[in-house]
Design a protein around this nucleic acid. Structure first.
Lengths: 233, 233
DNA sequence: TGACTTATTATGTATGCACATATTATCGGA
DNA sequence: TCCGATAATATGTGCATACATAATAAGTCA
């Protein structure tokens, strides 16, 4: 049979990568236009277009109408991090998942939270703090503010048996999200539950989500010492 | 219904997002197949395909051949982080950029470094440690191992006037990269140069790059206290 | 010369068709 | 009933063509 889809866009992509790797094309160099490349590689322009578009999405090429395509002079790194359910992440490590609710309270959120989410300053929030455990050991502390205007059903959920993380994912989708990563000393915040030693540093993933233009939630997920967040490939 | 003459794939994408946001389609629901959607929206199947593919890339849809397309039950978050040149990042904050070389030395890398990069244990590396400053204040500490087998030209560069970060980006592209984020206490490593107070927590971005299958470098970029890494949108 | 208009060019995208491929459903035979 | 072959189906992809759009170059006129 055919050794490969000889003209697939993946093949074109790899050929371009090869020419970059072998320095046939160097950073800043213009490469042939799509039509010429298609002729050279024996495929349709649409195929070349898809390959070059994917490389451009990865930051390896700069493309401009009329200006043509060039090897990126400054290949902007793009690290894509997948954010799984905490329970799923723990299960994938082969550990037993545990959950403990620490606090659940209706309240007005700190100004920074409501401002960042774009709610009124006195909007009603549900504040849920809980702990995720892997094999009985603390894994992550979840400190979450849920916008009750958007998710009124959350009032009826006690979050004693299911985490807000999981409940939200089950009950409503989102269409926009933003993330922020930072480091905090173990002493700060309510990291006490995480079994930290004095002097430990913890990584915090803050995430906000929206459904259309309605804000859903902000969460600070603080991980146990030593946690690493990595890109998947 | 909508006889909008704008048949762009972005339009289709937004229409699908709208139906998710308005809960016309709920998590887990199957949506019509591409052909039917195309007929309904008055465009070609390829257009619907592109829109759904982009939503699937964003983790909002699950697609399977024959199985069809469903609203993701667990919209896996994907946070995409752009990694600029440190100098560029500082300039964009409107600060004056400064640079200071701390150490430059040919050496054998720690086993973890050579193993992760896939070089021989005794491969020659160039170890470059330097400090990036924003308005004279420490911004990030760069601790880098460069694979001399792949980048022999690095031997001829003193890295006194230009950072390894920038020199590498100017001299050679990469085709693959992986990233890892973690938190470390200020005491650890050589964070002394960062003007930290005892008890501070620092965020570290470790990154490895390859050109084709040849490893280029591993770098630990340790940022000053309070630094946040955020997704751009 | 300088400002404005008009080609020109490369990418961006829509379309209709064809076929490939993965996955599920169905059916027949032991 | 179980198992394997086969059909059906939705997505995945390639192709040729056409036109849209952005950016640049060339040309025009005051």
């Amino acid at each position: 049979m055919s050794e490969r889809p000889a003209h697939g866009w993946q093949t074109v992509r790899e050929e371009v990568l090869r020419r970059i790797a072998e320095k046939i094309w160097r950073p800043g160099d213009p490469i042939p236009n799509e039509a010429d490349l298609a002729a050279e590689l024996g495929c349709a322009r649409a195929t070349v277009n898809r390959a070059l578009r994917s490389l451009s999405d990865d930051g390896l090429l700069d493309r401009r109408r009329k200006g043509g395509t060039r090897i990126a002079r400054q290949p902007v790194g793009r690290a894509t991090i997948e954010i799984p359910l905490i329970r799923t992440a723990i299960a994938e490590r082969g550990a037993r998942y545990g959950y403990r609710l620490i606090e659940r309270q209706e309240a007005v959120a700190p100004g920074a939270v409501s401002a960042a989410l774009g709610t009124a300053a006195d909007a009603a929030f549900l504040h849920v703090v809980s702990l995720h455990l892997a094999d009985e050991a603390p894994y992550a502390l979840e400190d979450r503010w849920i916008v009750l205007g958007t998710v009124p059903e959350a009032r009826d959920e006690g979050f004693e048996a299911i985490s807000a993380n999981e409940w939200l994912v089950r009950h409503l989708p989102f269409t926009r999200a933003e993330s922020e990563f930072s480091a905090v000393p173990a002493a700060a915040a309510r990291s006490g539950a995480l079994d930290t030693a004095p002097g430990d540093a913890l990584i915090v993933h803050r995430r906000r989500t929206w459904l259309g233009d309605k804000p859903i939630t902000q969460v600070d997920m603080t991980f146990a010492p030593g946690h690493r967040i990595r890109t998947q490939q």
